[in-house]
Amino acid sequence: MNVTERLSFFAALFKVDDNPTTGMWWLYITIVILSIIVFKLGFAKKLPLVKAAVIYLFLILGCTVLTFLGVFLPVAEGLVVAALILIIYKIRLNQERKQKGNETA
Rank of each mutant, 00 (worst) to 15 (best):
K98L: 15
G101F: 09
L69P: 00
R92Y: 10
L86M: 13
S35E: 07
W25C: 03
L73I: 04
F72I: 01
L69E: 10
K98Q: 12
A11Y: 04
A105C: 11
C63F: 00
A44R: 13
K40I: 11
E96I: 11
T64C: 02
V75D: 11
A76S: 06
V81G: 06
L13T: 13
S35W: 05
L84V: 15
F43C: 05
F9N: 03
L73A: 09
K98E: 14
T21S: 03
F72H: 10
L66C: 05
E77S: 05
G42W: 08
V54D: 02
G70H: 09
L66E: 08
L79C: 03
T64V: 12
K51D: 05
R97E: 13
T104F: 10
V54Y: 08
K90Y: 02
T4H: 11
K51H: 06
M1E: 09
I36D: 01
R97V: 11
A53N: 14
A11S: 11
T64L: 09
A83K: 04
L34Y: 07
L34W: 03
C63T: 08
L66N: 11
T30D: 04
F43D: 07
N102E: 15
V16C: 07
I33W: 06
L49T: 15
I37F: 08
T21E: 03
R92Q: 12
Y89E: 14
T67K: 05
L79F: 10
K51S: 09
L66D: 08
V32C: 15
K90M: 03
G23N: 00
T21G: 01
A12V: 01
T30L: 12
L47R: 13
V3Q: 04
L79K: 09
G23S: 00
K40P: 00
T4S: 15
